[in-house]
């Protein structure tokens, strides 16, 4: 017969039933500000976001001069012009390596503790293995006409690159290219019909892209959820938590947040206000 102790061991309950608190439970308060993740603000600083859908507060900057960034919910990756770094949920630097200049694309494993970074300028792939970075020897572009637009890390043994293949007529179709991360396995690919860049692949398997009416979330079972939104003319997408995506207006200071959780989808504007 299963039974519950009648006294949970959270700090919140400590004052009522202190004798049941386990050693170490003090270290983590039971009631905390709700943290949504990290965003890159209009001054290119990395800042934590606290809040709920429709109510956001930005915390102080934890890193300046960000070129690219993403956060899984427990692990973050950021790219400056000359380095690639990993940080934890408090914004604390875990490790950093030199990297070629320019932006990067990121993908987290479903568990959110390992990740891949694709450095666009030198077409290189780097893996975060939980405690350090390691280069991955794969050919990310079959030809120079391929443009890698997004990245996924569905299994520890495989990366998925979302590439646009140019043709003589201009921008071609989008393809998802599956690359083995070891000597074993084969390369495969499939066309992404109806998807257009910018796009973002989430660890859940959701693919986030856009259409004329707003944001589209394509689920792994190919079903789609449409989120009405008025989108900037030019934007990029970054993961800011497990089921939250930051949308960055590339021509302005506006920042938006997309909630992709099933049944709670929404499109919100993040504060970009400045103190008076």
């Amino acid at each position: 017969m299963t039974s519950l102790t009648t006294k949970p061991w959270t700090t919140a309950l400590l004052f009522v039933l202190p004798v049941l608190v386990l050693p170490g439970a003090w270290a983590q308060p039971a009631i905390t500000p709700p943290k949504l993740g990290f965003v890159e603000d209009s001054s290119r600083a990395l800042r934590p976001v606290f809040g709920l859908a429709g109510n956001f507060v930005l915390g102080p900057s934890v890193a300046p001069k960000i070129v690219s960034q993403a956060f899984s919910g427990s692990l973050g990756l950021l790219k400056t012009d000359s380095s690639l770094a990993a940080f934890d949920s408090r914004g604390k630097l875990l490790a950093s390596i030199d990297a070629a200049p320019g932006p990067a694309l990121f993908a987290f494993s479903p568990g959110g503790v390992t990740a891949l970074a694709y450095i666009i300028s030198d077409n290189s792939l780097v893996e975060w293995r939980g405690n350090s970075f390691a280069p991955v020897a794969v050919n990310c572009q079959e030809s120079s006409a391929d443009t890698v637009l997004a990245l996924a890390f569905p299994t520890p043994f495989e990366a998925s690159l979302f590439v646009q293949r140019r043709t003589v007529q201009g921008a071609g179709a989008l393809w998802e290219v599956h690359l083995p991360l070891s000597a074993f396995g084969t390369v495969s690919q499939n066309a992404l019909v109806g998807v257009r860049a910018p796009l973002l692949a989430l660890p859940s398997g959701d693919l986030v892209y856009w259409d004329a009416d707003g944001i589209v979330v394509r689920k792994p079972d190919a079903s789609e959820v449409h989120i009405a939104a008025s989108l900037p003319a030019s934007f990029s997408l970054q993961q800011m938590k497990l089921d939250w995506v930051q949308l960055t207006d590339l021509n302005g200071s506006a920042r938006f947040a997309i909630h992709t959780a099933l049944g709670r989808e929404g499109f919100y504007q993040l504060p970009s206000s400045n103190p008076e």
Partner: peptide, 20 residues
């Protein structure tokens, strides 16, 4: 800093099989 929003985590010790 945060108004009225909060995140609460309650942890309950269980004796026995939690999957039940």
């Amino acid at each position: 800093q945060y108004g009225g929003m909060f995140q609460m985590l309650a942890t309950f010790l269980v004796t026995g099989d939690t999957t039940q």
